[in-house]
């Protein structure tokens, strides 16, 4: 029974950390989109590109550090940062919507560039984050 309670408590803690991290990540993503709208304009989805690149870098850095230093601070905050914050900060649904609306409005070239070029960049940023984490 104690074991069951502990497992259940662990699950609840995990989900509470995910909820808090995802809320924070989503609010920050919203802040980035407002800032981009104010300073750069709405011609190209820079905000979504930016959060997806930063989030890809951070998740790879954090996950790599966590597996290199088990039981430490990094691993204890993994639910909050990796599953919560990075997941809430990055967004795939908006990426798809933006690709679609760019495609069917006036900007087929911009749409193609956005749709085809940014995913390899996400992966490059993740690889970069993992590499930095391995070196530190």
């Amino acid at each position: 029974m104690k074991g069951v309670n502990r497992a259940l408590g662990g699950q609840l803690n995990h989900y509470a950390a995910v909820a808090a991290g995802s809320a924070l990540g989503s609010v920050l993503r919203y802040g980035v989109s407002l800032a981009c709208l104010a300073f750069v304009g709405s011609g190209f989805p820079w905000a979504t590109l930016g959060v997806n690149l930063l989030g890809s870098w951070l998740i790879a850095w954090w996950a790599t550090r966590a597996s290199a230093t088990p039981g430490g601070f990094i691993q204890r905050w993994q639910s909050f940062v990796v599953a919560g914050f990075c997941g809430g900060f990055t967004t795939f649904s908006l990426f798809s919507l933006e690709s679609l609306t760019l495609l069917q409005t006036h900007a087929p070239l911009t749409a193609l560039a956005y749709f085809l070029l940014t995913p390899p960049l996400w992966l490059a940023f993740a690889a970069w984050g993992a590499q930095v984490a391995r070196r530190s």
Partner: peptide
């Protein structure tokens, strides 16, 4: 939807 979908996990 922003919190639900994720690019970071996909990349990782």
């Amino acid at each position: 939807l922003g919190g639900y979908t994720t690019v970071s996990s996909f990349s990782l």
